[in-house]
Design a binder for these strands. Structure first.
Lengths: 212, 212
DNA sequence: TTTCGTCAGATAACGCCGTTATCTATGATG
DNA sequence: CATCATAGATAACGGCGTTATCTGACGAAA
């Protein structure tokens, strides 16, 4: 009978393709990524890629999945760090922003406007859900610990959307030269939202305590 | 001597090309827009387009400019409407969101991540500046009228980024099925930011007055 | 009125893209 | 050792953005 690719070989092939794709996305930009180019870098023919991925979109979906997971890793690491919930939440925010600007191609890949919907229960959908859970988790904990008082899911999405808004305006170069710097906008936004949700008990200790 | 295109003919040619480009962007999506396709719709050869625009990117830049101007028109109309500054500011926000979801391709065109920088003093740069001014203007007026108290530019950018964040998450389909609806997130975000900036005098009249 | 120069626009072509059809060589199984 | 399904190469398709080249039409000059 034939010589079948083992599961391990398939996995390795996919991993090699993804590695090249991610490197090229960084080097030449997401939109210049091409099947021919990836194959060239591997010393393969372009058609060989189709033994490992159904088409280009499948490669992008896998790269998106990996990007989601890397983002989640960083958010979870920040959340698992030292300090009280205030400090850790701040670190989660920093991790998000750092990820975005250290990996703009990954951030773009994840949040690009035109995206084919992910198949339900696909790896991509799961990675997306994990990232969303991480974007919610720290807010839920703040509410659970009584630091702030709000509908956790709603407030989490407000935080997330706000952060994503500044990040993506900055990335798209839509903050003109007359605009305040990115970090100023971000800090002011977060400060306003936080204060709007401070629990009565936290209001005394945090609000005054945080500003010496 | 030769038969030169008059300024008017050039302007008309550019207008026809743009009209087709914008229609096709709506019909088939921004990324399927092509020089060949635009020319086909015009009954021209693809190369004829190069008599009117330097290249495809120039067409996109012109379309971006037009999109910016349409957005500005709507923002200005909302700002010029009836009612006090609270009502008009609310309408500016509605105009922004309505524009985004009624013209997703235009919104995408404007706020897409990867954008070649606009040439300084180009029509595009001017249209961009006009739109940014409109995103600032209503906040400046609120501050001027004493309704709220903040650095106008900073607060305007916080509002804008927040709104853009919810809009673009929604457009990219990144708000999962477990997320609160778009309008809920938007309203909550705007409410929180507004309250954080209410001037002491407005706090009494607005905060209580606005909730019956 | 004929010639001529110049430019608008068409045709052809280039190299790239994503993808499919077809071929070839391989190596485990009978 | 012969067979045969398959991995991967080669070739090809239609489409892309863009450039080179050709063609034809018109205003100025003769």
């Amino acid at each position: 009978m034939p010589v079948l690719l083992t599961q391990a070989q398939i996995a390795e092939g996919r991993a090699r393709i993804l590695a090249v794709a991610e490197r090229q996305a960084v080097e030449i930009g997401l939109d210049r990524l091409s099947m021919h180019g990836i194959a060239r870098a591997l010393g393969w023919s372009a058609t060989a890629l189709y033994r490992y991925f159904e088409n280009k979109e499948a490669i992008l979906a896998a790269a998106r999945t990996a990007a989601f997971d890397r983002l989640s890793d960083r958010l979870e690491a920040a959340m698992a760090g030292p300090g009280d919930i205030w400090a850790r939440s701040r670190e989660v925010g920093n991790a998000y922003v750092d990820f975005a600007f250290e990996n703009p191609q990954s951030y773009r890949l994840i949040f690009e406007f035109a995206q084919p919907p992910a198949a339900p229960d696909s790896d991509l959908a799961l990675a997306n859900a994990r990232a969303r859970a991480n974007m919610r988790g720290y807010v839920e904990q703040m509410v659970a610990e009584g630091a702030i008082d709000a509908d956790p899911s709603l407030l989490a999405h407000v935080f997330w959307a706000g952060l994503h808004g500044v990040v993506s305006l900055q990335m798209a170069g839509r903050l003109g030269p007359d605009a305040p710097p990115f970090e100023t906008i971000r800090r002011d936004m977060v400060r306003r939202i936080i204060r709007s949700a401070l629990s009565p008990s936290a209001r005394a200790s945090h609000q005054t305590g945080a500003r010496r």
